[in-house]
Design a protein around this nucleic acid. Structure first.
Lengths: 140, 140
DNA sequence: CAAATCCGTTGTATAGTGCAACAAATATCG
DNA sequence: CGATATTTGTTGCACTATACAACGGATTTG
């Protein structure tokens, strides 16, 4: 029996290892979208349009960082901004058609890559693993 | 019933979210060691001394990156290099006493931080989560 | 209305990273 | 054995992601 403390160490080690590799893999998976731009595009799409400040808060990024990433996405034609009619300070960010297409494609490639990793796993194990991760993510 | 595909999407999303935040948190946790330098110090200690090429391979980093991180760790007095007597091209990297002390301290802080996150979890759930993560990490 | 606050941009600095070129040591093969 | 290839690490260069600070415009608050 491994014991709780040793299990926690395993979790820590494995999650850290994953984090270290994530950017590398993300860029390999889809060269046009970094982990961050992908995440931004995904968030604003999921929310049906949101503001840069929301993105910054959600990802714990500085607003200047978000501003630059958004500018980059806009230059690539993947995202459009419009001034919020209710508050002229803010902008509402939305993915363009091209952005949505790319996002769908990126999601699909990521899905395939992840799916390949779970070929040996039973449906039950996949479901439980997902539950644990969701629970972990929620608590922090 | 969520279904296998949707579980895989959850896993993907949660792991991605974790990766995004990991560096940020790591630097908050211990300002002297970044996620990468911490990982390098940990690896060479766990292996009882190893070479820069091994580090690069293990973390999928370019050798130049490792070279610079190792230089930085050496300048901080956390790590020492000695030429490998069996192969004068290579160097054997080892943590110094100061490096070991800092590593132990960083590990302890990380342990506390992780432990706090699992206060609501049963021992069984923690153990299963660790098993899943280890299994996931092994297959890639 | 004046002051404080919020939103986004831009200037500046830093860390992390990869690629390419290189030098030295070692391995391989004719 | 000797020429060539490979491995190991360093350095120059470029680029991305990031934070912090200063700013200008818009809105809220007192």
């Amino acid at each position: 029996m491994p014991g709780r403390q040793s299990s926690i160490e395993t979790i820590q080690r494995e999650l850290t290892a994953f984090a270290r590799r994530a950017r590398h893999k993300a860029s390999q998976l889809h060269p046009d979208l970094s982990l961050v731009t992908y995440s931004i595009l995904d968030l604003i799409t999921e929310r049906g349009g949101c503001r840069a400040a929301d993105v910054a808060a959600h990802f714990m990024l500085d607003k200047s960082t978000v501003s630059r990433q958004v500018t980059a996405l806009e230059k690539l034609g993947l995202l459009a901004r419009e001034t919020d009619p209710d508050d002229q300070r803010g902008q509402i960010l939305r993915a363009t058609e091209a952005g949505l297409t790319l996002l769908r494609d990126a999601n699909e490639q990521r899905r395939l890559s992840f799916t390949a990793r779970f070929t040996d796993w039973s449906d039950e194990d996949v479901a439980r693993f997902a539950d644990y991760l969701a629970r972990y993510g929620q608590e922090g």
